[in-house]
Amino acid sequence: MKTFKLQLSICFWLCLFLSAIECRADTPVFTIEIRNHLFNPSTLVVPSGKKVKLIVHNLDETPEEFESYELNREKIIMGGAKATIFIGPLDPGDYPFFGEFYPKTAQGIIKVQS
């Protein structure tokens, strides 16, 4: 019971904290669109060593799941919805991502450059 109360209070403070966090001024923001099960742009260049905010806008009617093993991110984005995904800080290199629901067409790369 004590553990549950602790978990509950942690959740409460977590929610409070999250709603208070605004986009920090120095966090670069990039937008990727999903249209016809394709990512646009399919290649994104982001700075290295910094936290980066990705906004994925699903313009299709059906949901898609943005997923990347290299970036360790996966998020379902409902049709017509926007999703925020934080990545980084990352070392320079190529980090592919794909749409899990339509993996053959929805593919892209995030190129991290210093």
């Binding site: 978990q7 959740c11 929610c15 999250l18 379902i76 409902m78 999703a83």
Partner: peptide, 27 residues
């Protein structure tokens, strides 16, 4: 309710639900 869940908590609703469910499983 996935759309409503995803939009809640400034777009973090999906992850928060996942974290809650995972925490309950671990406990």
């Amino acid at each position: 309710f996935s759309s409503q869940i995803a939009d809640s908590f400034d777009g973090a609703g999906q992850e928060l639900l996942s974290v809650s469910l995972l925490s309950i499983i671990i406990i």
